[in-house]
Nucleic acid binder design. Structure first.
Lengths: 275, 275
DNA sequence: CCAATAGTGTCTGTGAGACAGTATAAG
DNA sequence: CTTATACTGTCTCACAGACACTATTGG
């Protein structure tokens, strides 16, 4: 028979959480940054690459596989965002960078150990803010989007030594909002369901690029409009027209009196974010 | 000393989830629908109202308070979305309606019992799909957005008997994407942190209205453009101009040969969603 | 007739796409 | 001078905002 309580305080005194089935949670972080791709032509400016941080697992499960940095939530008083920040600090020594909750992944089979629900976060950083204080198992992977249509997404991640090929099938979920279920078609090239997190994060970043100033979280304090445009182009995976780009960006940046010279061609003005 | 495992299978045999701190999760559902607001003038068409479903808690904690329908996740094999669907079916007998993950709320104090992380879902439905098979503790509340600026959001929920006033302070989180932390300023007018879920969901719906066909999940099969426009207006909380609205919507709907008559004014054509 | 909504025509301003053109550094 | 990028001028087209206008019903 159910016991009758007279007040919330009385009820809580009797309540024992261990009476119920429980589970574990993790926060996983997709840390995205922009890298320079060296060119051999003294005139050409460096192309930009998008990079993400992966960590090599040195324990089971998925021992030896690459995965996103992440860690278990301490259920006693820690929030998921605090957990994400703690992990980020541990792996990269980065603090106070852009962090945004992405999505909660909860396929019961995503972790072979037990039920682990993962809330993923997207973090953005300007690579110049990175010191060398980084976990020796952590490494930047350049991101190349090979394919992204209504049927599938294909991404290649490469750190110069290892190459990881991600292939994800899209299944239309409902037509009104063009939403898809993502189904991993990878054979353990990356640990857990982190391929899904990566694809979801890249899409979120692409979308936000168009209606926010999010890009400036990945830029150094001073930059040329050409550099900024290249960053947009590598994230959106398409060429933009100069005049159109400059019109859009004009209201967001402020021209400084600094110039960038010595590039084998006309110098360009340095701008900064008009916060 | 750490034990060395030779394979993932061997590792998993030894793994005991109970060795780690655990927590509970719930799926909470913001079910949104559109209601008619009766008018006394025989000429005037009904205005539209936005409604959400709330449930009166008959147990501690928050006994007697209204809250969103929700339930504990069964960690053994159930996904959060399955959990949300199970709860929705139990409370409303609704199945196969629009369902989208909103956000994961995890303030450690959000549930006074123990650590409970909640993943919230937004569900949309056409009220005509609702039979009377509904939990007797569940009830529709009309939603009125009183205020929504950069400092605060204020919403009133009313079911004709009870009125719930939600007030949420916004604190700018970072300027590049205009993101805010939402801080509840309610004194337990609604249970848990469900005021935050409601505000987040309403905002998501407003945004998606502009770049998706999401609205048709709340419409009956046949509708007039006037009705559809009123639905947009009540969700966006502003008047739209007829010609502009018709231009935008033209590509999404299909005119049928049915007409809606007997309204005290010129009849209008019935349209349906051009799926 | 009136009230209320249905539905259309059209002007205007904004802003993106497109392309052509000029400017200027290093080598 | 050449090369590569910096930066600007301007045409066009699509489209949203705005307002005026006609059409059609019930009472």
């Amino acid at each position: 028979m159910k016991k009758e309580y007279k007040s919330e305080a009385e009820f809580l005194k009797d309540y024992n959480p261990k009476d119920f089935e429980q589970l574990s949670m993790t926060a996983d972080i997709l840390l995205i940054s922009i890298s320079d791709e060296e060119t051999n032509n003294y005139r050409k400016t460096n192309d930009k690459m998008m990079s993400i941080l992966l960590v090599k697992r040195d324990d089971y499960p998925f021992k030896g596989k690459w995965c996103l940095p992440g860690g278990f939530l301490n259920p006693v008083g820690e929030t998921l965002e605090e957990c994400a920040k703690r992990v980020l600090k541990k792996e990269t020594n980065l603090q106070d960078i852009y962090l945004e909750q992405l999505y909660t992944f909860d396929n019961p089979k995503r972790d072979p150990r037990t039920r682990v629900v993962s809330t993923s976060y997207m973090a953005l950083v300007d690579k110049n803010k990175l010191t060398d204080m980084i976990n020796e198992n952590a490494c930047w992977f350049d991101v190349v989007l090979l394919e992204d249509n209504k049927k599938e997404v294909e991404v290649t991640l490469s750190n110069g030594i290892d190459t990881i090929h991600l292939k994800i099938k899209k299944v239309l979920r409902e037509k009104t909002t063009d939403r898809y279920d993502f189904i991993s078609e990878n054979n353990n090239e990356i640990a857990f369901d982190h391929d899904l997190v990566i694809v979801a994060g890249l899409e979120r970043l692409r979308n936000k690029l168009n209606y926010t100033d999010i890009v400036f979280n990945m830029m150094p304090k001073y930059f040329t409009l050409g550099e900024l445009q290249k960053v947009y182009e590598v994230i959106l995976n398409k060429k933009l027209l100069d005049p159109a780009f400059r019109r859009i960006i004009a209201g967001k940046v402020e021209k400084t009196n600094k110039m960038k010279t010595g590039e084998g061609h006309r110098p360009s003005a340095l701008f900064k974010y008009k916060g």
